[in-house]
Simulated scan of single mutants.
Amino acid sequence: MIFDEKKNLDFYKNLGIEGRYAKAVAFLQNTDLKALEPGKYEIDGKDVYANVTAYTTIPWDEAKYEAHEHYTDIQYVIEGSEIMTYAPVHEMTVKTPYNPDKDVVFFENSTPGLQIVAGPDQYLIFNPWDAHKPKAMNGQPAPIKKVIVKIKED
Rank of each mutant, 00 (worst) to 15 (best):
E42V: 11
V77T: 15
E69C: 04
Q122S: 08
F27G: 13
L114K: 09
T56D: 08
I43T: 08
N127Q: 06
G39I: 02
A24R: 04
N51V: 05
Y55G: 03
A35T: 05
K152W: 01
I2D: 00
D47G: 01
Q140P: 03
E153Q: 01
E69D: 05
E153Y: 00
D61M: 05
E91Q: 13
L36G: 05
I144A: 14
Y65N: 06
L28F: 06
T72A: 08
K7P: 04
P112M: 09
N127M: 07
K13W: 07
E66S: 13
V77D: 11
A22T: 06
M137S: 13
D47W: 00
W60Q: 12
T57I: 10
P59A: 14
N127G: 02
D154Q: 05
I151L: 00
P100K: 10
D32G: 04
W129T: 03
V25G: 06
W60F: 15
Y86S: 04
V25I: 15
K95R: 09
K6E: 14
L124I: 11
E79N: 15
T96D: 13
A63F: 11
F27P: 12
L124H: 04
E42N: 12
A50S: 02
I74G: 01
F126E: 01
Y21M: 00
K34P: 09
A22V: 07
I148N: 14
L9D: 05
H132S: 07
E91S: 14
V52P: 08
L114C: 06
E108F: 06
A26T: 12
N8D: 04
K150P: 06
D44I: 01
A136N: 11
K46C: 03
A87C: 11
L36Q: 02
Y98P: 01
P88K: 11
V104E: 04
V77I: 15
N30F: 02
G19A: 08
Y49K: 02
V25C: 10
K146F: 11
D154S: 06
H70L: 13
G113H: 07
I74A: 01
F106W: 07
E5F: 15
P88D: 12
K102P: 07
M92N: 03
E62L: 04
I148K: 10
P134T: 05
M84F: 12
Y65D: 03
V48E: 03
K102I: 06
P88V: 08
T85D: 14
F106E: 03
K102D: 12
D73W: 03
Y98D: 03
A63E: 11
